[in-house]
Structure formats: C-alpha cells, structure tokens
Amino acid sequence: MGRYLTGLCVTALGACAGGWLMLTPFAFGYPGHGRAAVTSLGTGGVLVVTCLAALNCWALLWRRKLRADGVLQVRQPRRSRRSVRRQAKAERLVRATRKRELVTAPDPAQVLTDLRALLTPLLTEGTVEVVHATPSAEPAAALEPDPVPVPVPGNPLPDGGHPRGTRSASFLIAAPRPREAADSNSDEGPVQRGAELLKVGTGDEEAW
C-alpha cells in the first residue's frame, strides 16, 4: 500500500510543481522569450503531462491491487453482465435437459422385454401369412434335403458371404426354403419353430 501511496504522492507533487513552473514566468514577470521563461515553461509542461500519466497508472495499479485483495468489489461491464446472464440461462437449460434425460432414461432390459412382448405376436402372424402366401410349387424338390454348404476358397461363405443362422431375423422375411415348405406339412410347423427360435434368441440377449 505504501508503494502505491508514495507513487501517487510523488507524481501528484510533480504535476503540481509542473503547473507552478508553467505559471512562474507570468507570475514573476520573467522576460518574455528569455531562457528562464522557456526553461520553466518547457520543464513544467513535460512534468505536467508525464506526472498525470504516471498518476493515472499508480491509481489504476492501486485499484487493481485492492480488487485483488477483495477490498473493492469487482465491477463488470454491461456487456459482460449480459453475457453472464445468457451463460447462466444456457446452463440452466442444459441442466434441465440433462435432468429430464436422466429421469426418463429407459431401462434397457425393460425395453427389450416390452419389445419382445410387442413383436412376438406380430412376427408370428407375419410368418403365418408368409407361409400361407408361399405356395409349395415343387413338392418333389421340397422333399429333397438341403445341400450342405461347402466353403469355396474364393468365397468362404456359401450364401453370398452372409451367414444366415437361426439368430438372424432375416429368416422371418425371406420365403421359406424348400425344406421348411416340406416341414410345413408336418405337425410342428415353421410358426412354432420360429417362435421357439425367437424365444431362445431373445433369452440369450436378455442374459447379455
């Protein structure tokens, strides 16, 4: 504190002395363009300008120090206040959105269960339609057994590179293979087998 006060006092004294030096030629009647008058005016002018600038600097430094120590409150400009309000509003919105998301976030297991309950009857009906719509045009070919897929060196997967297993859902959409068409005549139709496969598959997913 003493440092800033000393700086302020000395620069204020210099400014006052400079003003006094600028007045002395007129106050004491120095010769108009004599060396004494020019020296007093020049030195006084330089002193006034320099000391006012230094006084301003010391004042700003002292205020900064007082704000850093918490003695003075930190003043914010208008634009900064507005931006702070906007920032707070945006943060409130983000916080509210996050909270809502967290509150209404569904349980994945519950979603799977609901989805299964919704889809099982629909898929079963769809399969029935597909089975009814597909005619068994070649009963003789349908009675032939499925050729065992043999991996070819160039193409290791026989069905166009996509392995179709019982876990894949594509078997519900595709037309039944000849063997399935043949099995449709038996007691346990593809509808029941599809439902069983679906249950097995979803059971595994639930375990996951």
Partner: peptide
Amino acid sequence: MSRVGMAGLVIVFTAGAWLIAAPFVLRF
C-alpha cells in the same frame, strides 16, 4: 503499468535535477 509508474518517478527526479542545473547550464 507498474513500469510506467516507476518511469514517472524517474522523470520527476530527472526534471528536478535538470531544474537545479538549468540556470547554470543555460547561463541565465
């Protein structure tokens, strides 16, 4: 900022020294 303040103090001292020497340097 602090350097400007210190420079102001140095200029005050220099101006004082010049004012002491000016009557003899300028021969009035």
